[in-house]
Design a protein around this nucleic acid. Structure first.
Length: 534
RNA sequence: UCCUCCAUAGCUCAAUGGUAGAGCGACCGGCUGUUAACCGGUAGGUUCUAGGUUCGAGUCCUAGUGGGGGAGCCA
Protein backbone atom coordinates (compact mmCIF):
# COMPACT_ATOMS: atom_id res chain seq x y z
CA UNK A 1 0.00 0.00 0.00
CA UNK A 2 1.40 3.32 -0.98
CA UNK A 3 0.42 4.76 2.34
CA UNK A 4 3.27 3.08 4.15
CA UNK A 5 6.03 4.65 2.10
CA UNK A 6 6.71 7.35 4.65
CA UNK A 7 6.12 5.17 7.64
CA UNK A 8 8.68 2.54 6.74
CA UNK A 9 11.21 4.82 5.12
CA UNK A 10 12.74 5.72 8.45
CA UNK A 11 13.15 9.26 7.25
CA UNK A 12 10.37 10.92 9.15
CA UNK A 13 11.75 10.90 12.62
CA UNK A 14 9.98 13.48 14.72
CA UNK A 15 7.41 16.23 14.54
CA UNK A 16 8.39 19.77 13.73
CA UNK A 17 9.68 21.58 16.77
CA UNK A 18 11.13 18.41 18.24
CA UNK A 19 14.26 18.23 16.07
CA UNK A 20 17.38 17.51 18.02
CA UNK A 21 19.64 20.06 16.36
CA UNK A 22 19.54 21.87 13.04
CA UNK A 23 22.09 19.44 11.68
CA UNK A 24 20.25 16.36 12.85
CA UNK A 25 17.68 16.70 10.11
CA UNK A 26 18.67 17.27 6.52
CA UNK A 27 17.18 20.10 4.49
CA UNK A 28 15.35 17.52 2.39
CA UNK A 29 13.83 15.95 5.45
CA UNK A 30 12.57 19.28 6.73
CA UNK A 31 10.90 20.07 3.44
CA UNK A 32 9.55 16.58 3.15
CA UNK A 33 7.69 16.73 6.44
CA UNK A 34 7.16 20.39 7.18
CA UNK A 35 3.54 19.86 8.14
CA UNK A 36 3.93 17.11 10.73
CA UNK A 37 3.07 18.48 14.16
CA UNK A 38 2.23 16.90 17.47
CA UNK A 39 -1.34 16.52 18.64
CA UNK A 40 -0.42 18.79 21.53
CA UNK A 41 0.51 21.62 19.16
CA UNK A 42 -2.34 20.91 16.78
CA UNK A 43 -4.85 21.36 19.59
CA UNK A 44 -3.42 24.75 20.63
CA UNK A 45 -5.01 27.58 18.61
CA UNK A 46 -2.14 29.87 19.60
CA UNK A 47 0.39 27.55 17.97
CA UNK A 48 -1.75 26.25 15.14
CA UNK A 49 -4.40 28.69 13.93
CA UNK A 50 -7.41 27.66 11.86
CA UNK A 51 -6.44 27.14 8.24
CA UNK A 52 -3.01 25.66 8.93
CA UNK A 53 -2.20 22.66 6.77
CA UNK A 54 -0.91 19.89 9.02
CA UNK A 55 -0.04 16.23 9.17
CA UNK A 56 -0.96 14.27 12.30
CA UNK A 57 0.61 10.92 13.11
CA UNK A 58 -0.69 8.73 15.88
CA UNK A 59 -3.01 5.98 16.98
CA UNK A 60 -6.79 5.81 16.73
CA UNK A 61 -8.59 5.98 20.02
CA UNK A 62 -12.20 5.83 18.81
CA UNK A 63 -14.13 6.09 15.56
CA UNK A 64 -17.74 7.21 15.21
CA UNK A 65 -19.62 7.06 11.92
CA UNK A 66 -22.40 9.00 10.28
CA UNK A 67 -24.06 8.40 6.95
CA UNK A 68 -24.65 12.13 6.46
CA UNK A 69 -23.09 13.83 3.46
CA UNK A 70 -22.33 10.49 1.84
CA UNK A 71 -20.33 9.20 4.78
CA UNK A 72 -18.69 10.91 7.67
CA UNK A 73 -16.40 9.51 10.34
CA UNK A 74 -15.00 11.13 13.42
CA UNK A 75 -11.66 9.61 14.33
CA UNK A 76 -9.96 10.50 17.57
CA UNK A 77 -6.19 10.29 17.30
CA UNK A 78 -3.63 10.47 20.08
CA UNK A 79 0.14 10.51 19.88
CA UNK A 80 0.98 10.68 23.58
CA UNK A 81 2.06 14.32 23.56
CA UNK A 82 -0.86 15.44 25.68
CA UNK A 83 -3.90 14.04 27.41
CA UNK A 84 -6.53 14.90 24.82
CA UNK A 85 -6.75 13.28 21.39
CA UNK A 86 -7.44 15.36 18.32
CA UNK A 87 -10.52 14.68 16.21
CA UNK A 88 -10.03 14.08 12.51
CA UNK A 89 -13.17 14.63 10.45
CA UNK A 90 -13.12 12.16 7.54
CA UNK A 91 -15.69 12.56 4.77
CA UNK A 92 -16.99 9.96 2.38
CA UNK A 93 -15.18 11.45 -0.59
CA UNK A 94 -11.80 10.35 0.76
CA UNK A 95 -10.33 7.92 -1.76
CA UNK A 96 -10.04 5.10 0.80
CA UNK A 97 -13.07 6.02 2.91
CA UNK A 98 -15.07 2.85 2.48
CA UNK A 99 -12.11 0.52 2.13
CA UNK A 100 -10.02 1.75 5.06
CA UNK A 101 -11.17 4.79 7.03
CA UNK A 102 -14.56 3.33 7.91
CA UNK A 103 -12.82 0.20 9.14
CA UNK A 104 -10.38 1.81 11.56
CA UNK A 105 -10.49 0.37 15.06
CA UNK A 106 -8.87 1.30 18.36
CA UNK A 107 -5.08 1.72 18.12
CA UNK A 108 -4.68 1.46 14.38
CA UNK A 109 -1.73 3.67 13.46
CA UNK A 110 -2.53 6.45 10.99
CA UNK A 111 -1.24 9.58 9.33
CA UNK A 112 -3.74 12.29 8.53
CA UNK A 113 -3.18 15.29 6.25
CA UNK A 114 -5.63 18.15 6.52
CA UNK A 115 -6.42 21.69 7.52
CA UNK A 116 -7.06 22.83 11.07
CA UNK A 117 -10.68 23.87 11.50
CA UNK A 118 -12.73 24.81 14.50
CA UNK A 119 -15.07 22.27 16.02
CA UNK A 120 -18.67 23.60 16.28
CA UNK A 121 -18.40 23.06 20.03
CA UNK A 122 -15.00 24.74 20.20
CA UNK A 123 -11.42 23.60 19.90
CA UNK A 124 -9.20 22.61 17.00
CA UNK A 125 -9.85 19.59 14.82
CA UNK A 126 -8.51 18.37 11.49
CA UNK A 127 -10.56 18.29 8.29
CA UNK A 128 -8.91 15.27 6.70
CA UNK A 129 -7.75 15.45 3.08
CA UNK A 130 -5.86 12.17 3.17
CA UNK A 131 -5.73 9.31 5.66
CA UNK A 132 -2.93 6.76 5.43
CA UNK A 133 -3.19 3.63 7.53
CA UNK A 134 0.32 2.74 8.73
CA UNK A 135 -0.51 -0.22 10.94
CA UNK A 136 -3.76 -2.14 11.29
CA UNK A 137 -4.92 -3.84 14.45
CA UNK A 138 -5.40 -7.47 13.57
CA UNK A 139 -8.43 -9.28 14.97
CA UNK A 140 -9.99 -6.23 16.67
CA UNK A 141 -12.49 -8.45 18.48
CA UNK A 142 -9.62 -9.91 20.51
CA UNK A 143 -7.45 -6.80 20.83
CA UNK A 144 -6.94 -6.55 24.59
CA UNK A 145 -7.49 -2.80 24.87
CA UNK A 146 -10.97 -1.57 24.10
CA UNK A 147 -12.50 1.91 24.12
CA UNK A 148 -14.01 1.35 27.55
CA UNK A 149 -12.82 1.40 31.16
CA UNK A 150 -10.56 -1.50 32.05
CA UNK A 151 -9.58 -2.53 35.54
CA UNK A 152 -5.99 -1.80 36.54
CA UNK A 153 -5.61 -5.45 37.53
CA UNK A 154 -6.47 -6.53 34.00
CA UNK A 155 -4.18 -3.94 32.44
CA UNK A 156 -1.28 -5.25 34.55
CA UNK A 157 -1.59 -8.44 32.53
CA UNK A 158 -1.36 -6.37 29.32
CA UNK A 159 1.52 -4.24 30.49
CA UNK A 160 2.98 -3.81 27.01
CA UNK A 161 -0.25 -2.20 25.83
CA UNK A 162 -1.54 -0.36 28.88
CA UNK A 163 0.44 2.84 28.23
CA UNK A 164 -1.89 3.40 25.27
CA UNK A 165 -4.77 4.06 27.67
CA UNK A 166 -5.47 7.53 28.95
CA UNK A 167 -4.62 6.68 32.56
CA UNK A 168 -1.24 5.14 31.87
CA UNK A 169 -0.36 7.75 29.30
CA UNK A 170 -1.00 10.37 31.96
CA UNK A 171 1.07 8.43 34.50
CA UNK A 172 3.95 8.20 32.03
CA UNK A 173 3.93 11.93 31.32
CA UNK A 174 3.72 12.90 34.99
CA UNK A 175 6.51 10.48 35.79
CA UNK A 176 8.72 12.11 33.18
CA UNK A 177 7.84 15.62 34.33
CA UNK A 178 8.58 14.65 37.91
CA UNK A 179 11.99 13.22 36.97
CA UNK A 180 12.93 16.39 35.15
CA UNK A 181 11.60 18.57 37.97
CA UNK A 182 13.63 16.68 40.50
CA UNK A 183 16.89 17.25 38.66
CA UNK A 184 15.98 20.91 38.15
CA UNK A 185 15.23 21.40 41.83
CA UNK A 186 18.57 20.01 42.96
CA UNK A 187 20.50 21.74 40.20
CA UNK A 188 18.98 25.09 41.11
CA UNK A 189 19.84 24.51 44.77
CA UNK A 190 23.50 23.80 44.07
CA UNK A 191 23.42 20.01 44.32
CA UNK A 192 25.61 17.73 42.20
CA UNK A 193 24.13 14.59 40.69
CA UNK A 194 26.25 11.58 41.65
CA UNK A 195 25.95 8.22 39.90
CA UNK A 196 26.30 5.76 42.73
CA UNK A 197 26.90 2.13 41.81
CA UNK A 198 24.17 -0.39 41.09
CA UNK A 199 26.39 -3.31 42.05
CA UNK A 200 27.81 -3.30 45.53
CA UNK A 201 30.41 -5.72 46.80
CA UNK A 202 29.95 -4.84 50.44
CA UNK A 203 27.17 -6.53 52.34
CA UNK A 204 26.92 -3.68 54.77
CA UNK A 205 24.16 -1.47 53.54
CA UNK A 206 21.82 -3.15 55.95
CA UNK A 207 18.49 -2.22 54.40
CA UNK A 208 16.99 -5.60 53.80
CA UNK A 209 17.39 -8.71 51.66
CA UNK A 210 19.62 -8.27 48.62
CA UNK A 211 19.72 -9.77 45.14
CA UNK A 212 22.94 -11.63 44.48
CA UNK A 213 25.12 -10.68 41.51
CA UNK A 214 27.31 -13.55 40.40
CA UNK A 215 28.86 -15.14 37.35
CA UNK A 216 29.45 -18.46 39.11
CA UNK A 217 27.92 -21.56 37.56
CA UNK A 218 25.06 -22.23 39.96
CA UNK A 219 25.10 -25.91 39.04
CA UNK A 220 28.78 -26.30 39.79
CA UNK A 221 29.78 -23.96 42.58
CA UNK A 222 33.41 -23.69 43.60
CA UNK A 223 33.93 -24.77 47.20
CA UNK A 224 36.48 -23.39 49.56
CA UNK A 225 39.58 -25.58 49.73
CA UNK A 226 39.85 -27.55 52.95
CA UNK A 227 36.16 -27.21 53.55
CA UNK A 228 35.15 -30.17 51.41
CA UNK A 229 32.60 -32.31 53.09
CA UNK A 230 32.50 -30.27 56.24
CA UNK A 231 29.11 -29.38 57.62
CA UNK A 232 29.87 -25.69 57.87
CA UNK A 233 27.17 -23.59 56.28
CA UNK A 234 28.54 -20.21 57.14
CA UNK A 235 28.65 -17.93 54.13
CA UNK A 236 26.79 -20.36 51.93
CA UNK A 237 23.73 -18.34 51.09
CA UNK A 238 22.96 -19.47 47.58
CA UNK A 239 19.58 -21.12 47.23
CA UNK A 240 21.20 -24.26 45.88
CA UNK A 241 19.57 -27.55 44.96
CA UNK A 242 20.00 -28.96 48.42
CA UNK A 243 19.75 -32.67 48.93
CA UNK A 244 19.55 -33.65 45.29
CA UNK A 245 22.72 -35.66 45.54
CA UNK A 246 23.93 -34.19 42.28
CA UNK A 247 26.10 -31.64 44.04
CA UNK A 248 28.42 -31.55 47.00
CA UNK A 249 26.46 -31.67 50.22
CA UNK A 250 25.78 -28.29 51.61
CA UNK A 251 28.48 -27.54 54.02
CA UNK A 252 31.53 -26.82 51.92
CA UNK A 253 31.43 -23.04 51.87
CA UNK A 254 31.23 -21.42 48.46
CA UNK A 255 34.51 -19.92 47.34
CA UNK A 256 33.52 -16.40 46.32
CA UNK A 257 37.13 -15.53 45.56
CA UNK A 258 36.40 -17.34 42.29
CA UNK A 259 33.43 -15.04 41.58
CA UNK A 260 33.59 -12.06 39.24
CA UNK A 261 34.45 -9.46 41.88
CA UNK A 262 36.50 -11.82 44.03
CA UNK A 263 33.93 -11.48 46.76
CA UNK A 264 30.20 -11.62 47.24
CA UNK A 265 28.32 -8.94 45.33
CA UNK A 266 24.74 -7.73 45.31
CA UNK A 267 22.43 -5.17 43.74
CA UNK A 268 22.32 -1.98 45.77
CA UNK A 269 19.62 -1.37 48.35
CA UNK A 270 20.64 2.27 48.78
CA UNK A 271 23.15 4.70 47.35
CA UNK A 272 23.49 6.51 50.65
CA UNK A 273 26.81 5.21 51.96
CA UNK A 274 28.45 5.88 48.61
CA UNK A 275 26.91 9.30 48.15
CA UNK A 276 28.11 10.33 51.61
CA UNK A 277 31.67 10.09 50.30
CA UNK A 278 30.89 12.67 47.62
CA UNK A 279 29.02 14.82 50.11
CA UNK A 280 32.26 15.10 52.10
CA UNK A 281 33.85 16.90 49.14
CA UNK A 282 31.04 18.52 47.11
CA UNK A 283 28.86 19.64 50.06
CA UNK A 284 25.51 19.08 48.39
CA UNK A 285 24.88 15.95 46.33
CA UNK A 286 22.11 13.58 45.36
CA UNK A 287 21.61 10.27 43.63
CA UNK A 288 18.66 9.09 41.59
CA UNK A 289 18.62 5.52 40.45
CA UNK A 290 17.10 2.09 40.72
CA UNK A 291 17.19 0.30 44.04
CA UNK A 292 16.64 -3.39 44.65
CA UNK A 293 15.08 -5.19 47.58
CA UNK A 294 14.66 -8.95 47.57
CA UNK A 295 12.06 -8.85 50.33
CA UNK A 296 9.12 -11.17 49.76
CA UNK A 297 6.70 -8.33 50.25
CA UNK A 298 3.49 -8.28 48.30
CA UNK A 299 1.66 -5.04 48.91
CA UNK A 300 0.36 -2.07 46.96
CA UNK A 301 3.32 0.00 48.24
CA UNK A 302 6.35 -2.26 47.64
CA UNK A 303 8.41 -3.23 44.62
CA UNK A 304 11.51 -5.37 44.21
CA UNK A 305 12.94 -2.72 41.89
CA UNK A 306 12.12 0.91 42.52
CA UNK A 307 13.68 4.32 42.04
CA UNK A 308 14.97 6.36 44.92
CA UNK A 309 16.12 9.95 45.29
CA UNK A 310 18.77 10.40 47.96
CA UNK A 311 20.11 13.89 48.68
CA UNK A 312 22.93 14.37 51.18
CA UNK A 313 23.93 17.75 52.62
CA UNK A 314 27.10 18.66 54.52
CA UNK A 315 27.31 21.05 57.49
CA UNK A 316 23.67 20.29 58.14
CA UNK A 317 21.39 19.16 60.94
CA UNK A 318 18.22 17.11 61.05
CA UNK A 319 16.21 20.33 60.93
CA UNK A 320 17.99 21.34 57.71
CA UNK A 321 17.19 17.89 56.35
CA UNK A 322 13.49 18.20 57.18
CA UNK A 323 13.34 21.65 55.61
CA UNK A 324 14.91 20.31 52.41
CA UNK A 325 12.41 17.44 52.31
CA UNK A 326 9.49 19.83 52.70
CA UNK A 327 10.75 22.25 50.06
CA UNK A 328 11.32 19.36 47.69
CA UNK A 329 7.87 17.84 48.11
CA UNK A 330 6.24 21.23 47.60
CA UNK A 331 8.31 21.87 44.50
CA UNK A 332 7.20 18.55 43.05
CA UNK A 333 3.54 19.42 43.60
CA UNK A 334 3.94 22.88 42.15
CA UNK A 335 5.69 21.55 39.06
CA UNK A 336 3.25 18.80 38.10
CA UNK A 337 0.30 21.15 38.66
CA UNK A 338 1.88 23.76 36.41
CA UNK A 339 3.36 21.54 33.70
CA UNK A 340 0.88 18.64 33.53
CA UNK A 341 -2.38 20.42 34.20
CA UNK A 342 -4.27 18.30 31.67
CA UNK A 343 -3.17 15.00 33.19
CA UNK A 344 -3.64 16.23 36.76
CA UNK A 345 -7.19 17.33 35.92
CA UNK A 346 -7.87 13.79 34.75
CA UNK A 347 -6.48 12.28 37.96
CA UNK A 348 -8.62 14.70 39.95
CA UNK A 349 -11.78 13.77 38.06
CA UNK A 350 -11.36 10.05 37.50
CA UNK A 351 -8.75 8.64 39.88
CA UNK A 352 -9.07 10.56 43.15
CA UNK A 353 -11.82 13.10 43.61
CA UNK A 354 -10.40 16.14 45.39
CA UNK A 355 -6.79 15.36 44.48
CA UNK A 356 -6.01 18.90 43.35
CA UNK A 357 -7.48 20.43 46.51
CA UNK A 358 -5.51 17.98 48.63
CA UNK A 359 -2.23 18.82 46.88
CA UNK A 360 -2.81 22.56 47.05
CA UNK A 361 -3.54 22.21 50.75
CA UNK A 362 -0.25 20.38 51.27
CA UNK A 363 1.56 23.09 49.32
CA UNK A 364 0.06 25.95 51.32
CA UNK A 365 0.58 24.72 54.87
CA UNK A 366 3.90 24.21 56.65
CA UNK A 367 4.52 20.56 57.47
CA UNK A 368 3.76 19.49 61.00
CA UNK A 369 6.96 18.58 62.90
CA UNK A 370 6.47 16.13 65.73
CA UNK A 371 8.99 14.30 67.92
CA UNK A 372 8.44 10.55 68.04
CA UNK A 373 8.02 10.86 71.82
CA UNK A 374 5.17 13.35 71.29
CA UNK A 375 3.57 11.14 68.66
CA UNK A 376 3.41 8.31 71.19
CA UNK A 377 1.61 10.68 73.57
CA UNK A 378 -0.87 11.70 70.86
CA UNK A 379 -1.61 8.06 70.12
CA UNK A 380 -1.97 7.20 73.81
CA UNK A 381 -4.42 10.06 74.23
CA UNK A 382 -6.37 8.82 71.22
CA UNK A 383 -6.60 5.36 72.80
CA UNK A 384 -7.81 6.95 76.03
CA UNK A 385 -10.58 8.60 74.03
CA UNK A 386 -11.64 5.29 72.54
CA UNK A 387 -9.55 4.98 69.36
CA UNK A 388 -8.92 1.28 68.65
CA UNK A 389 -5.63 -0.01 67.26
CA UNK A 390 -4.73 -3.59 66.46
CA UNK A 391 -1.17 -3.12 67.72
CA UNK A 392 -0.21 -1.61 71.09
CA UNK A 393 1.41 1.82 71.28
CA UNK A 394 4.60 1.75 73.34
CA UNK A 395 7.63 4.02 73.46
CA UNK A 396 10.57 2.19 71.94
CA UNK A 397 8.66 0.26 69.29
CA UNK A 398 8.15 1.28 65.69
CA UNK A 399 4.86 2.85 64.71
CA UNK A 400 2.55 0.56 62.75
CA UNK A 401 0.82 1.52 59.50
CA UNK A 402 -2.43 2.06 61.40
CA UNK A 403 -0.70 4.49 63.77
CA UNK A 404 0.85 6.49 60.95
CA UNK A 405 -2.48 6.62 59.14
CA UNK A 406 -4.20 7.88 62.27
CA UNK A 407 -1.67 10.69 62.66
CA UNK A 408 -1.73 11.94 59.06
CA UNK A 409 -5.29 11.14 58.02
CA UNK A 410 -7.33 11.64 61.17
CA UNK A 411 -5.48 13.64 63.77
CA UNK A 412 -3.39 16.19 61.82
CA UNK A 413 -4.90 15.71 58.34
CA UNK A 414 -1.65 16.80 56.69
CA UNK A 415 1.92 15.57 56.15
CA UNK A 416 3.74 14.96 59.40
CA UNK A 417 7.51 14.90 59.94
CA UNK A 418 8.24 12.52 62.80
CA UNK A 419 11.65 13.06 64.37
CA UNK A 420 14.05 11.62 66.94
CA UNK A 421 13.18 7.95 67.06
CA UNK A 422 14.35 5.48 69.70
CA UNK A 423 17.89 4.40 68.89
CA UNK A 424 17.16 0.66 69.01
CA UNK A 425 14.76 0.68 66.04
CA UNK A 426 16.93 2.70 63.66
CA UNK A 427 20.04 2.19 61.53
CA UNK A 428 23.60 2.30 62.84
CA UNK A 429 24.63 5.42 60.93
CA UNK A 430 22.03 7.74 62.51
CA UNK A 431 23.35 10.36 64.89
CA UNK A 432 22.80 9.76 68.59
CA UNK A 433 20.93 12.59 70.32
CA UNK A 434 21.85 14.07 73.70
CA UNK A 435 20.11 12.23 76.53
CA UNK A 436 16.68 13.60 77.35
CA UNK A 437 16.00 15.13 73.93
CA UNK A 438 12.24 15.80 73.65
CA UNK A 439 11.89 14.41 77.16
CA UNK A 440 12.32 10.91 75.76
CA UNK A 441 12.57 8.15 78.37
CA UNK A 442 15.37 6.43 76.43
CA UNK A 443 18.15 7.05 73.92
CA UNK A 444 17.10 8.55 70.59
CA UNK A 445 18.72 9.19 67.22
CA UNK A 446 18.27 12.09 64.82
CA UNK A 447 16.02 10.22 62.40
CA UNK A 448 13.01 11.55 60.56
CA UNK A 449 10.17 10.04 58.57
CA UNK A 450 7.87 12.13 56.41
CA UNK A 451 4.39 10.62 56.51
CA UNK A 452 1.72 11.70 54.05
CA UNK A 453 -1.98 10.86 53.90
CA UNK A 454 -2.96 7.87 51.75
CA UNK A 455 0.61 6.73 51.02
CA UNK A 456 2.25 6.62 54.45
CA UNK A 457 6.00 6.88 54.69
CA UNK A 458 7.27 8.74 51.63
CA UNK A 459 10.65 9.82 53.01
CA UNK A 460 13.03 8.31 55.53
CA UNK A 461 16.09 10.27 56.55
CA UNK A 462 18.48 11.20 59.31
CA UNK A 463 21.38 13.28 60.46
CA UNK A 464 24.39 10.97 60.16
CA UNK A 465 26.69 10.09 63.03
CA UNK A 466 29.82 12.13 62.29
CA UNK A 467 31.70 11.18 65.50
CA UNK A 468 33.90 8.13 64.93
CA UNK A 469 33.77 6.87 68.52
CA UNK A 470 29.98 6.99 68.57
CA UNK A 471 29.75 5.36 65.13
CA UNK A 472 32.08 2.57 66.21
CA UNK A 473 29.99 2.12 69.33
CA UNK A 474 26.88 1.62 67.22
CA UNK A 475 28.60 -0.76 64.81
CA UNK A 476 29.76 -2.86 67.78
CA UNK A 477 26.39 -2.73 69.51
CA UNK A 478 24.65 -4.03 66.44
CA UNK A 479 27.24 -6.73 65.84
CA UNK A 480 28.21 -5.43 62.40
CA UNK A 481 31.56 -6.31 60.78
CA UNK A 482 33.64 -3.19 61.42
CA UNK A 483 36.25 -4.18 58.82
CA UNK A 484 33.67 -3.92 56.06
CA UNK A 485 33.02 -0.29 56.94
CA UNK A 486 36.63 0.87 56.71
CA UNK A 487 36.05 3.44 54.00
CA UNK A 488 32.84 4.72 55.57
CA UNK A 489 34.67 5.12 58.90
CA UNK A 490 37.51 6.94 57.12
CA UNK A 491 35.07 9.78 56.35
CA UNK A 492 34.87 10.34 60.12
CA UNK A 493 38.64 10.23 60.53
CA UNK A 494 39.53 12.75 57.85
CA UNK A 495 37.70 16.07 58.11
CA UNK A 496 34.35 14.88 59.40
CA UNK A 497 31.42 17.31 59.48
CA UNK A 498 27.78 17.07 60.58
CA UNK A 499 25.68 16.00 57.62
CA UNK A 500 22.23 14.68 56.85
CA UNK A 501 20.17 13.23 54.05
CA UNK A 502 17.08 11.27 53.15
CA UNK A 503 15.67 8.75 50.75
CA UNK A 504 12.49 9.49 48.84
CA UNK A 505 10.71 6.66 47.08
CA UNK A 506 10.01 7.96 43.60
CA UNK A 507 7.04 5.66 43.04
CA UNK A 508 5.54 6.65 46.39
CA UNK A 509 5.85 10.28 45.34
CA UNK A 510 4.04 9.34 42.13
CA UNK A 511 1.22 7.75 44.12
CA UNK A 512 0.99 10.78 46.35
CA UNK A 513 0.85 13.14 43.35
CA UNK A 514 -1.50 11.20 41.07
CA UNK A 515 -3.81 9.48 43.54
CA UNK A 516 -3.01 6.10 41.96
CA UNK A 517 -3.39 3.52 44.69
CA UNK A 518 -1.06 0.73 43.59
CA UNK A 519 2.68 1.23 43.19
CA UNK A 520 2.62 -1.23 40.27
CA UNK A 521 0.60 1.26 38.28
CA UNK A 522 3.04 4.18 38.54
CA UNK A 523 6.14 2.42 37.14
CA UNK A 524 6.29 1.18 33.55
CA UNK A 525 7.30 -2.41 34.26
CA UNK A 526 6.90 -3.31 37.94
CA UNK A 527 9.05 -6.03 39.46
CA UNK A 528 7.64 -7.86 42.45
CA UNK A 529 7.85 -11.41 43.81
CA UNK A 530 6.82 -13.73 40.98
CA UNK A 531 6.35 -10.83 38.57
CA UNK A 532 8.85 -10.09 35.84
CA UNK A 533 6.94 -11.11 32.70
CA UNK A 534 7.49 -7.90 30.78
C1' U B 1 5.99 -14.99 54.92
C1' C B 2 0.92 -14.57 57.37
C1' C B 3 -4.56 -13.40 57.04
C1' U B 4 -8.54 -12.83 53.61
C1' C B 5 -11.31 -12.58 49.00
C1' C B 6 -11.57 -13.87 43.86
C1' A B 7 -11.05 -16.86 38.90
C1' U B 8 -17.60 -17.90 33.72
C1' A B 9 -17.59 -14.66 26.18
C1' G B 10 -12.37 -9.85 23.99
C1' C B 11 -13.71 -6.77 28.85
C1' U B 12 -17.08 -6.02 33.36
C1' C B 13 -20.21 -9.25 35.66
C1' A B 14 -25.03 -12.66 36.40
C1' A B 15 -26.72 -17.85 36.74
C1' U B 16 -31.26 -21.96 44.35
C1' G B 17 -26.67 -28.77 42.74
C1' G B 18 -30.87 -29.46 37.11
C1' U B 19 -30.77 -26.40 29.07
C1' A B 20 -24.58 -21.00 29.79
C1' G B 21 -26.95 -15.20 30.32
C1' A B 22 -26.67 -9.61 30.15
C1' G B 23 -24.16 -4.92 29.28
C1' C B 24 -20.03 -3.03 26.75
C1' G B 25 -16.62 -4.30 22.70
C1' A B 26 -16.22 -6.83 17.60
C1' C B 27 -18.98 -7.76 12.97
C1' C B 28 -23.53 -6.48 9.66
C1' G B 29 -27.46 -2.87 8.89
C1' G B 30 -30.23 1.91 10.18
C1' C B 31 -30.02 7.09 11.96
C1' U B 32 -27.32 11.30 13.34
C1' G B 33 -21.38 17.15 13.13
C1' U B 34 -20.57 12.64 16.27
C1' U B 35 -17.72 12.94 20.89
C1' A B 36 -18.96 7.22 27.29
C1' A B 37 -23.20 8.61 20.54
C1' C B 38 -28.06 6.21 19.60
C1' C B 39 -31.49 1.97 17.41
C1' G B 40 -31.90 -3.18 15.32
C1' G B 41 -29.46 -7.81 14.23
C1' U B 42 -25.24 -11.62 14.10
C1' A B 43 -21.16 -14.21 15.84
C1' G B 44 -18.51 -15.32 20.15
C1' G B 45 -17.84 -20.53 25.95
C1' U B 46 -13.17 -27.21 27.35
C1' U B 47 -16.95 -21.88 33.29
C1' C B 48 -8.20 -21.36 35.55
C1' U B 49 -5.77 -26.68 36.04
C1' A B 50 -5.89 -31.76 38.11
C1' G B 51 -8.50 -35.02 41.06
C1' G B 52 -13.01 -36.20 44.08
C1' U B 53 -18.50 -36.34 45.90
C1' U B 54 -23.24 -36.83 43.09
C1' C B 55 -28.19 -39.70 38.76
C1' G B 56 -26.36 -34.74 37.54
C1' A B 57 -21.05 -29.77 39.27
C1' G B 58 -20.02 -23.01 36.80
C1' U B 59 -22.04 -24.06 41.81
C1' C B 60 -19.93 -28.77 46.88
C1' C B 61 -14.81 -31.04 48.65
C1' U B 62 -9.10 -31.54 48.11
C1' A B 63 -4.62 -29.90 45.89
C1' G B 64 -2.27 -26.65 42.56
C1' U B 65 -1.73 -22.11 39.52
C1' G B 66 -2.80 -16.98 38.78
C1' G B 67 -4.77 -12.35 40.69
C1' G B 68 -6.93 -8.57 44.33
C1' G B 69 -7.04 -6.45 49.35
C1' G B 70 -4.81 -6.22 54.31
C1' A B 71 -0.38 -7.16 57.64
C1' G B 72 4.92 -7.50 58.40
C1' C B 73 9.50 -5.42 56.12
C1' C B 74 10.44 -0.62 54.18
C1' A B 75 10.95 3.80 50.26
Amino acid sequence: METTARGVSGRTLRPRGVRLTPSAATIAEQEFDMAWISVRDALAPSKTPVGTEVTIKGWVRTRRDSKAEGGLSFVHIHDGTCFDPIQAVCKGDLRNYGSEVAKLTTHCAVEVDGAIVQNPKGGNEVAAKAVRVIGWVEDPDHYPIQPKPHSFEYLREQMHLRVRTNTFGAVARVRHTLSMAMHRFFDQHGFFYVHTPIITASDCEGAGQMFRVSTLDMCNLPRRAGDEGSLKTHGDKLPGPAGTGAHPPHGAAIDFSKDFFGKEAHLTVSGQLNVETYCMALSRVYTFGPTFRAENSNTSRHLAEFWMIEPEIAFASLIDDARLAEDFIKFMIQTVLAERADDMKFFDERIEKGLLARLKDVMDKPFRHLPYTEAIKVLEQAIAKGQKFEYPVKWGTDLQSEHEKYLTEQHFKQPVVLMNYPKQIKAFYMRENDPGTDGAPGATVAAMDVLVPAVGEIIGGSQREERLDRLDGRIDEMGLPKREYWWYRDLRRYGTVPHAGFGLGFERAMMFLTGMQNVRDVIPFPRAPGQAEF
